[in-house]
Write a protein that binds this DNA or RNA. Structure first.
Length: 612
RNA sequence: GCCUUCGUAGCUCAGUGGAUUAGAGCGCUUGCUUGCGGAGCAAUAGGUCGCAGGUUCGAGUCCUGCCGAGGGCACCA
């Protein structure tokens, strides 16, 4: 925001150092980390260290030397500032080896608030990056149900997509459901055997029913301790039936394929509804079943290019000796199979084929995979093979791994049906918020309450998933996830509601342009200064979160911003401000804060309710 | 054995090269509602940043080793 002034000062420092033969190190600017006033700062420690190494100048310890340089620089800058050549700067200080350049508060406040209100929903949006990013997430298996672990995956992916999109990248959202394999066949087998023709009412009931069938089927097929010969025979008979169904599916048997299509659609109906609940709009659907057959073609290509080794003639598989092909002497990526000896494909085969499609058909420059951290080896191998294959994009492939979500009683298990379903948690969230609403917000019409309860409840759940760094495991506790106090989604939403409430009361909602004359030339309190400071950091936070692929950076920022607003709210009473100019300035500041909170929440896939 | 993630307050977690005194939330203790909605604010207590070396003017942050925990290592996904 003050690049011009910063540049000017930088020039003067360089001139000074050149004239005085000081080996100036690179100037790194940062905001002054003290509350109450703002500006930018740089240190001279590196420069002082350089001088010491060269044995030049006074033999002071580095910190003192840095301070000496800072003071000298301050000396020359002050003269210029008094000449009026550095606009918008109030004063300059040399403290502990740092040069602090302070802004004129009224100028700074006006610039920040003006920019936010002029940009609105686009405040913080980055300039076009001219690169295409594809984020792959929401890859649950069909014929199961969407649980809380899938929710973490989907929210991380969606927020990442929103971040890179807002930061200026052209963004494609991709989903890759696993719709084939033994788990899928198992559900179809028991359905066909025991429940043919049945179909529960309701999208979620029907999807969840499939997950229950899987549990039942697994129990029927699992070997038990001390089973009788009759039981063993029964179990083996079931197993044979399941194998036969898999064979028929593979052979394209019409009946089995039809059964598969119908039941798969039940799962996808449920998935699509969950995504709608999470406000996620997927652009491209890659089904595992659709990339399976085409992926076999790339195996031949990799053999022809001498990247893969065909050991089928000796009864083996098709493998890639990754380390050897890369010329590595120490084992790192090792060797992996890309085609089984029986000619069927693997996870890796399909991911390689899919990557090719992403690069060649979708022209993706950066490819991000939001997948469980346990698969990091798989992705390292896949990216290494893509590099061997000659795709320069392999350098910009990124696996956003995340720790798995478990329950206080242990890991979730689809086989045993020990799952916490997303839909159940969402319903519980709404129930809990409604209970609070009824108590605290009796004035809100009943028909509105349900909608608000959903926004708040999902805000709590979503924030709880995003406020932990992605590489950490989460032990899911409903009471923690749906907490409304402290560092939570509702806390941030409440800051938005309060800002909204002030604006509504002051009747300037939607016509803040009438306050354009406010110039912030009154003495700002430290709470106002901190709020403006926090707001001004939003654009760089967007940039950082997007380039580092870290939703947590934005989640932390949103909390800090809300926290600063809540403090401001208590310390400064806007409506009771007597001086009209001051009150108008504060109203504009509240409008800017409201806008920034809304923009931050939107990036976090959390809604901003007007009242709560 | 090799690779990888991690070890910060009683608990859950931020902070990953620079600024007094390492920060939040929960929990504990205590104030604040005749004020724009208290899902809030303010204050107090609580830390040899796993251990030991090293690099650096400067290390919770980088490097090495050790201890402890999780995850992964060719025909599952």
């Amino acid at each position: 925001m003050f690049q011009k002034e910063q540049q000017l000062i930088e020039e003067k420092i360089k001139e000074f150092c050149k004239a005085n033969d000081i080996a100036l190190a690179e100037l790194k600017w940062q905001p002054i980390p003290f509350a109450g006033e703002w500006g930018f700062a740089t240190s001279f420690f590196q420069t002082a260290a350089n001088e010491a190494k060269l044995g030049k100048g006074s033999k002071l310890p580095v910190p003192q030397k840095a301070q000496e340089i800072a003071e000298q620089v301050k000396g020359i800058l002050r003269l210029d500032a008094q000449d009026g050549s550095v606009d918008g700067i109030s004063h300059i200080e040399a403290v502990k080896g740092y040069l602090n350049v302070y802004f004129k508060t009224s100028d700074y406040a006006r610039r920040v608030v003006d920019e936010v209100l002029a940009s609105g929903l686009n405040f913080g949006r980055g300039a076009a990056k001219h690169e295409k990013v594809m984020v792959e997430y929401a890859q649950p298996n069909t014929h199961h149900s969407f649980h809380i672990g899938h929710a973490r995956n989907t929210l991380l992916g969606e927020v990442l997509a929103r971040l890179v999109e807002f930061a200026g990248f052209e963004t494609i959202r991709a989903s890759y459901p696993g719709d084939l394999g033994l788990g899928v066949i198992t559900v179809m087998w028991i359905y066909d055997k025991k429940y043919k023709g049945q179909e529960p009412e309701g999208i979620h009931e029907r999807g969840q029913w499939l997950a229950k069938l899987y549990v039942e089927a697994t129990a029927m097929l699992e070997k038990k301790e001390g089973e009788t010969p009759e039981e063993s025979a029964k179990r083996e008979e079931y197993e044979a039936e399941r194998r036969e169904m898999y064979r028929k599916w593979d052979a394209g048997d019409e009946y089995v394929r039809n059964l598969w299509h119908v039941t798969r659609e039940w799962s996808l109906d449920e998935l699509r509804d969950v995504l709608k609940m999470l406000d996620v709009k997927i652009d491209v659907w890659f089904y595992e079943s659709e990339v399976d057959e085409p992926s076999k073609a790339i195996v031949d290509e990799l053999i022809a290019k001498d990247i893969a080794t065909d050991e089928r003639p000796t009864g083996g598989a098709v493998i890639v000796k990754i380390d050897e092909k890369l010329g590595l002497t120490k084992e790192k990526y090792r060797t992996n199979v890309i085609l089984r000896s029986d000619g069927t494909t693997l996870y890796l085969t399909k991911d390689l084929a899919l990557a090719k499609v992403k690069f060649e058909q979708y022209h993706v420059d950066r490819s991000i995979y939001v997948v469980d951290t346990r698969q990091s080896m798989h992705f390292q191998q896949a990216f290494a093979i893509l590099k061997l294959w000659g795709f320069p994009q392999s350098e910009k492939c990124f696996h956003l791994g995340y720790g798995f979500v478990s329950l206080p009683e242990g890991a979730m298990s689809a086989r045993r049906g020990r799952l916490v379903l997303f839909k159940d948690v969402a319903d519980e969230a709404v129930k809990r918020v409604l209970a609070v609403e009824t108590e605290k917000s009796a004035d809100i019409p009943a028909e509105e309450r349900e909608k608000i309860a959903y926004q708040i409840g999902m805000g709590a759940l979503t924030y709880s998933m995003l406020s932990v760094d992605n590489n950490k495991d989460i032990v899911f506790d409903v009471n923690e996830a749906l907490s409304f106090d402290g560092r939570t989604g509702p806390y941030i939403q409440n800051a938005y509601v309060r800002a909204n409430s002030i604006l509504k009361k002051s009747k300037v909602e939607g016509q803040t342009s009438d306050l354009r004359l406010s110039t912030f030339d009154y003495e700002l309190t430290k709470h106002e200064i901190e709020l403006i400071e926090q707001i001004s950091r939003f654009p760089q936070t967007v940039e950082q979160a997007a380039l580092e692929y870290r939703p947590l950076v934005m989640a932390s920022y949103a909390y800090d911003l809300a926290n600063t607003f809540h403090s401001f709210y208590h310390a400064v009473n806007v409506m009771q401000t007597e001086d009209e100019g001051t009150r108008n300035g504060r109203l504009r500041l509240v409008a800017a804060a409201k806008q920034t909170i809304e923009n931050a929440l939107r990036l976090l896939d959390i809604q901003s309710p007007d009242v709560m």
